[in-house]
């Protein structure tokens, strides 16, 4: 019983982080699916989302607004708007001018963008860890008195539910809406979609914006869950989410979700049963194995070579 509770607790921990990885991974996978390139500034957009949310929360607190749903919604909306604008700007500045050239060029300009954004936040917000208020506190406890109790916090539930809503909304958007259909067409053949009258520039911008908005959601959720943010925390999260996207099959949206969850659970199981020191070894080891044995990822389709 004890062992089962312990296992479930680690599973919950893993799924929580995994859902957030999945939200960030969507941004990588959508951009790759459409233009076949990795958006290396995506981790930074997630970080900026978290900072914007924190600024909004602090702002509301100084205005004296203390009603939780209002705070959360305002923070979420602010973060999504600012991050989306950033996503759009990244595409305009770092991708569009060099699109169609050798594919190393946009890769490098995206890395440059990432360094720029990171240092901009360093300058604007300072380089220290800033505490993020825990707005949603409390938990359900399972287990007997005096022994190991499994806890499922309201924050973890919030993360699951929010991720579920976002993923469902995204799936519906991609499969049902006009823009979603255009997205799929562009991802199949950009040139042909262009000939058929689809405004491909607009669609490409849209994918950057959607990915950025989801990253902002993850930024707010993880900021609250972890408890502190700093200008560098987008980098590692970006790498992890990228791993998740590759694991699930880059270019595939269900793949990103699956990859995120697998990565999160494998991380928490490693630190739960082995040692926390090996957490990152396992996640990046997984990436290497997948690249060696199934380069298209778990749910990816074999495709002609792209970066």
């Amino acid at each position: 019983m004890q062992d089962l509770l312990y296992f479930s607790q680690q599973l919950i921990n893993g799924l929580t982080i995994g859902s957030a990885y999945a939200l960030i991974a969507i941004g990588y996978t959508m951009v790759y699916g459409i233009i076949g390139m990795i958006n290396f500034a995506h981790g930074e957009i997630y970080m900026i989302g978290a900072y914007t949310a924190l600024i909004a929360i602090t702002g509301l607190a100084t205005l004296g607004i203390a009603w939780l749903p209002v705070i959360l919604i305002v923070a979420l909306v602010c973060a999504m708007i600012v991050s989306s604008a950033m996503g759009w700007a990244v595409e305009r500045v770092a991708y569009r001018p060099v699109r169609g050239r050798h594919r190393l060029i946009p890769l490098i300009s995206a890395i440059g963008m990432s360094i720029f954004l990171q240092n901009y936040v360093h300058l604007a917000q300072g380089s220290r860890n800033i505490g993020f208020p825990a707005l949603i506190e409390g938990s359900f406890q399972f287990g007997s008195e005096g022994a190991f109790a499994m806890s499922l916090s309201y924050m973890q539930i919030t993360i699951f539910v929010t991720t579920l809503i976002c993923m469902t909304a995204l799936s519906l958007f991609i499969s049902r809406s006009r823009t979603g259909r255009a997205c799929r067409a562009v991802s199949q053949d950009l040139g042909m979609a262009n000939l058929l009258g689809i405004d491909t520039n607009r669609i490409i911008s849209a994918t950057f914006v959607i990915g950025a908005a989801l990253a902002a959601v993850a930024g707010l959720l993880l900021g609250m869950y972890y408890g502190s943010i700093d200008p560098l925390f987008g980098f590692i999260a970006g790498l992890k989410a990228f791993t998740a996207a590759v694991l699930g099959g880059i270019g595939s949206i269900p793949g990103a979700m699956l990859g995120g969850l697998i990565l999160g659970v494998s991380e928490s199981m490693t630190s739960g049963y082995l040692s926390g020191e090996y957490k990152d070894v396992v996640s990046f080891g997984l990436l290497i194995l997948i690249l060696l044995f199934k380069p298209t990822g778990l749910l990816g389709k074999p495709e002609v070579e792209k970066i």
Binding site: N13, G14, I17, S228, F233, I236, G272, G276, E277, D280
Partner: peptide, 9 residues
């Protein structure tokens, strides 16, 4: 790992 943020496990 220094710099990591998730210590739930």
């Amino acid at each position: 790992t220094a710099g990591s943020k998730d210590f739930s496990s």
